[in-house]
């Protein structure tokens, strides 16, 4: 019960602190993969995480094609071709929502204590989450594409362009995941994360060329839609999937994606280290 048993650390403070924090990069990748596997196992037991990125966009597709399609696009067949690339971008943004909600949930349960008491990289829970969510996003894209083909959507470009569109969707989805991660970590209550998520998604989705031609919108909205990253990504995907101009929109889409990543990845990481 005395201090006599305490011996000073046998290395200098700085070295020791470094050793206490450092996990090698290979180990850190291993940790992220273990967490990613856990997040994918979660999907089997809580498929609702998957429904957000599959069933919801299908419902949107059916409603927009068969209810509004004639009114918006003149006829359903033309509107279907117009809509599907937009829906694929919607899949990316719905999928990203889950990233934030799931991270928030992890932090509000006792399991974070377990993770933090293990000798693992601090980043593991965040990087594992993003990794698993990219897998979920890829699955969502595959499902919606098959669904679209089943209801008559046709691609008019070559397989390389289709792969390019999918790659852009993954990249854009990744950037949205980082926004969602930031929101999920910055806000305490899971319900608030859920509502916030939809709040920032709605203008991004509807104030864009996702569902309708911005040319028919009032001037102020048109101005917003034209710089909205959703429009740029959707129009690029349209070009890559059904044909049309690509280059101009692609540049803007990539610029936005990189910009979002550059801003929100560090923000999310900072928020994460604060709480982890």
């Amino acid at each position: 019960m005395t201090a006599t048993l305490l011996t000073p650390p046998d290395r200098t403070g700085k070295e020791v602190r470094a050793a206490a924090r450092r996990v090698g990069p290979r180990a850190a990748v291993g940790h992220a993969l273990a967490i990613a596997r856990r997040n994918l196992v979660q999907l089997r037991y809580d498929p609702s995480q998957l429904l957000d990125a599959t069933l919801m966009p299908m419902v949107f597709t059916l409603i927009f094609v068969y209810v509004f399609g004639g009114a918006i696009g003149g006829n359903q067949a033309d509107y279907r071709q117009y809509l599907i690339p937009g829906i694929m971008v919607q899949v990316a943004s719905f999928a990203a929502q889950v990233t934030g909600v799931a991270l928030n949930l992890d932090f509000s349960t006792g399991v974070m204590d377990r993770f933090r008491s293990l000798p693992i990289a601090r980043s593991a829970v965040l990087s594992g989450r993003i990794l698993a969510d990219l897998c979920r996003l890829a699955l969502g894209q595959a499902v919606i594409l098959l669904f679209a083909l089943a209801i008559g959507f046709r691609m008019h470009t070559n397989p390389l362009c289709v792969l390019g569109a999918l790659a852009l969707l993954m990249l854009y989805g990744l950037s949205l995941s980082w926004i969602a991660a930031f929101v999920g970590l910055a806000i305490r209550s899971p319900q608030a994360v859920q509502s916030m998520g939809f709040l920032w998604m709605i203008p991004l989705q509807f104030g864009s060329s996702m569902f309708a031609d911005p040319g028919t919108m009032p001037g102020w909205l048109q101005a917003f839609a034209q710089v909205n990253p959703t429009t740029l990504v959707v129009d690029t995907c349209r070009g890559l999937l059904v044909g049309g101009p690509v280059a101009g929109n692609l540049f803007g889409a990539l610029a936005w994606t990189c910009g979002i990543l550059a801003v929100f990845a560090p923000l999310a990481v900072r928020q994460y280290t604060r709480r982890a």
Partner: peptide, 28 residues
Amino acid sequence: HDVVEEALQVRSRIGLTGQYASVDESIP
């Protein structure tokens, strides 16, 4: 090992069963 200066070494030598069980409810 010091719990502040050498947290990683401490973590690799301890087991924790928290008051509010820290099992992961979301996986089997």
